[in-house]
Amino acid sequence: MRDPANQPVEAPEYPPELARLPPGRHGLPREFVAHNQRERLIAGLAEAVAENGYAGTTIAHITRHAAVSRRTFYEHFASKDECFIAAYDTVMAELSRRVGEAFEQEDEWPQAARAGIAAMLEFLAAEPHLARLSMVEALVAGPVVVERYDAAIQSLVPYFQAGRDGRPEEVLAGLSPTTEEALVGGMVSLISRRIFADRAEELESLLPDLVEFTLTPYLGSTEAAKVARQG
């Protein structure tokens, strides 16, 4: 399926900011160790926030994790908030690249949607610190980040809207304009609740439920349950 969010798909290489983070379950390639100070600061923030929460994180925590001076921090960022925004954007860019790529690898929409959801769960489960940063800490990090968070979630809507293509008239008549928004909101609330409760390891087991939930409006419950139990 063509990625409806229409992002250019690039070589599967980790952005250096993320590559410096401690390896998750799947292990991050060590050879991508960042040299760039800005990247080290972003990675340092992610580590510091994982340890102390957003509110409890100080610039001293960040510079200690990044092994750079306080002065270097202020050469790159005016504040903790600004550094957090850079980290948030980096994580979300990586997440959306992975979702888009997984979605595009399937020809049929139901399988493409399933692959996109699976890619999201896999990334968040493998990187619990980044999952927390992007789905929990982002909400306490001030209005600028909250706005980005809302936009990131709404950017998933087109993947489900693609499910309308080629559906019979009576199915389309039953779909309200807010269907996709509600599906995305429901999906994200299941995911973020587990991350909030430090149960990121449960995320991948949500796949069948989430697939069935999001495909049912388009395919009906029987067909949606079938796709949910594939793989």
């Binding site: 979630i153 807010t178 928004e181 509600a182 599906l183 995305v184 909101g185 429901g186 999906m187 994200v188 609330s189 299941l190 609740r193 439920d209 989430l210 939930f213």
Partner: peptide, 11 residues
């Protein structure tokens, strides 16, 4: 149910 309520709340 969690997903339905999450969806309504999100909207």
């Amino acid at each position: 149910e969690e997903a339905l309520i999450g969806g309504v709340f999100w909207i």
